[in-house]
Structures are given as C-alpha cells and as structure tokens.
Computed example of a mutant assay.
Amino acid sequence: METARFVSLLAATITTGLVSGLFYGFSVSVMPGLRRTGDRTVIEVMQRINVAILNGWFLLGYLGALVFTGLALGLSVPSDGREALPQLIGAFVCYVLALGLTARVNIPLNNALEKAGPLDRIPDPAAVRSAFEQPWVRANVWRTVLCTVAFGLLAWALVLHGQGR
C-alpha cells in the first residue's frame, strides 16, 4: 500500500507538472508570439495545434494527472498517509477546476475555431480571431495558475510523504 501511494503521488506530481508546464508555455511564449502576428496566422497555427495536441502523450499527462492525483488521494485516506491529505485534496480540486475551465471555455473556443473552416474560406479572419484569442488566453492563464498550484501542493505532499517515512 505504501509503495502504491508513493508511486501514485510521484506520477501525479510529474503529470501535473507536465500539464502545468504546457499551459505555462502557451501563456508566456506561444500566445504572446501569436499576438504579434496577423489574424490568418493565429487561426492557422491554433487550428494546427488543436489537431496536433490530440495524441497519446498529451492524454497521458492530461488525464493521467487527474487519475494519479485521485488515486494518491484515495490511497491516503484509509492509511497512515493522512499527513498530506489537505495538500492532496487541494491539488485534486485545483486540477478538477482546471479541467472544468478547459471543458467550458478552451475546448469550445477550439471547436469554434475549427468550425470556422479552412483559412482560405474564412470571410472575416479578424472577427474569428477576436472571438477566439482573448477569451482563450484569459482561460489559459487561469488554468495555468490552477495547475501550478496543484503541482506545488503535490510537491509539498511528496515532501511530507518523505518526512513520514
């Protein structure tokens, strides 16, 4: 049980860190870089990213963070690993909120961008960009913050786990 709790906590920390880093990268480089480009460039790049990101490696981190954090939390409740319970609960809540934000804001905006169609058939790229960019960036900043807090809490839980040995 102790090994399973540690492995799930370690996996939760790693996968949450990866997702946090992905969102952070968009916040500090991808979207600021695109902000300085034309409407058609933003649409084309984000349409391509939205297709490319749907792969097994992304899903391993994105869904793995939820599964592993939930598992670490579940394995800590009935055991002597309760010293990290507040951190695990906080991490789980933050990550679920980030998933909810992604599902309610980022994914629908990505879908709307895709529904705009091929770039050469979009009559008003400025309107498409305007409807997409700022709401997506704002939501991404919040999910970056939530995932970073979750990552920090999981790292704290790892420290507490190590002290409890």
Rank of each mutant, 00 (worst) to 15 (best):
E44Q: 09
N106E: 02
R40I: 08
D120H: 09
V30C: 00
S20I: 12
G61H: 15
G21M: 09
R48G: 07
F68Y: 04
C94N: 04
G61D: 11
T13E: 00
L99H: 13
A112W: 14
A155I: 06
V96C: 15
P125I: 08
G90L: 15
A103E: 08
V7S: 03
E133Q: 11
R129H: 03
T102V: 07
V137H: 01
T144F: 06
Y62D: 04
L10V: 12
V93F: 07
M46N: 05
G164Q: 01
V159L: 06
N50D: 13
G38M: 08
S27G: 06
G152L: 05
G21Q: 11
P78G: 04
A139T: 11
G56P: 06
E133P: 01
P32C: 01
V51D: 12
V159P: 03
N55W: 05
Q134W: 10
R35G: 02
N140T: 14
A131D: 08
V77Q: 07
P135T: 06
A127T: 11
S29D: 13
M46E: 00
S76L: 12
L101Y: 07
N55V: 11
V42Q: 08
A127L: 10
R5Q: 00
L154V: 13
F23H: 11
A112H: 13
S29Q: 14
I122A: 04
A126K: 06
F23C: 08
R165K: 14
R121D: 11
E114Y: 15
L109M: 06
F68G: 02
P118G: 13
T102F: 10
L73M: 13
L119C: 04
P135R: 01
L101S: 00
M1F: 07
D39K: 07
L60H: 12
A65E: 06
V141K: 13
I122K: 04
N111Y: 14
E133Y: 10
G70S: 12
L158Q: 05
L18A: 05
F23K: 08
T15V: 12
L158H: 02
W142A: 10
A157Y: 00
L10M: 10
L34C: 03
S79Q: 07
L60S: 14
L73Y: 04
D120F: 01
R35H: 06
L160A: 03
Q87V: 10
F23P: 01
F132C: 00
A112I: 14
Q163C: 01
R138P: 07
T41I: 14
R121N: 09
G64I: 03
F6D: 00
L66G: 12
V77H: 05
L54K: 15
T148L: 14
G152N: 02
V96E: 10
T13G: 04
L113M: 12
S130N: 08
Y95F: 13
P118L: 14
R129Q: 03
W136Y: 02
V7M: 07
A98M: 15
L73Q: 01
L9K: 07
G21H: 12
S29L: 14
V28P: 03
A12P: 05
A126M: 02
L10C: 08
Y95E: 09
L9C: 09
T102H: 03
A65H: 01
A72W: 01
R104C: 12
G74D: 08
F92D: 01
Q87W: 06
L66T: 11
G61R: 15
V42S: 00
G74E: 10
L85T: 05
L75M: 08
N50H: 15
S8A: 15
L88R: 03
A11L: 15
I14K: 05
